[in-house]
């Protein structure tokens, strides 16, 4: 059973969003997604200052046998990206909601509130 923290919002394409106290939004991929992909060997994060539209492909996660795009869950501008992942992609397997975060956006937090909640996402992944 994969871990779906109650305080986050989710997309059907397996991204999570956390609205931080400063109003920015942190994005990553879910525990379920990292388990499906298997051991990650490469993560590409978007450049800082890049403007993203919701559903735009903006990051890539690769395992030995699969490569998957990550989509922006909401619109916004990238204010930070997790550069540690370049050398340590395993952080994403080990701690998908913590050390394995992908990037942080500034945008309209209300957009995040409209995404799936933990129950809806849990139902989605069965």
């Amino acid at each position: 059973m994969s871990n779906v923290p109650a305080d986050l919002r989710y997309t059907k394409s397996h991204e999570w969003v956390r609205v931080e106290s400063d109003g920015t939004m942190t994005v990553g991929i879910t525990d379920h997604a990292q388990a499906e992909l298997g051991d990650l060997v490469f993560v590409e994060v978007p450049e800082v200052d890049r403007a993203l539209k919701a559903s735009e492909a903006c990051a890539v996660v690769e395992s030995v046998k699969a490569a998957s795009d990550v989509y922006a869950p909401v619109s916004g501008t990238v204010v930070a990206a997790n550069e540690k992942l370049a050398d340590a992609p395993e952080l994403l397997n080990d701690d998908p909601y913590g050390e394995g975060w992908l990037f942080r956006l500034s945008g309209d937090a209300a957009e995040a509130e409209a995404l799936l909640d933990a129950d809806a996402y849990s139902a989605e992944i069965g």
Binding site: V41, F42, E62, V64, K65, A66, D69
Partner: peptide, 13 residues
């Protein structure tokens, strides 16, 4: 190695 760059995995990308 690094096969995820290749067509059989990345297809159109």
């Amino acid at each position: 190695t690094l096969q995820a760059r290749e067509q059989h995995i990345r297809r159109s990308k």
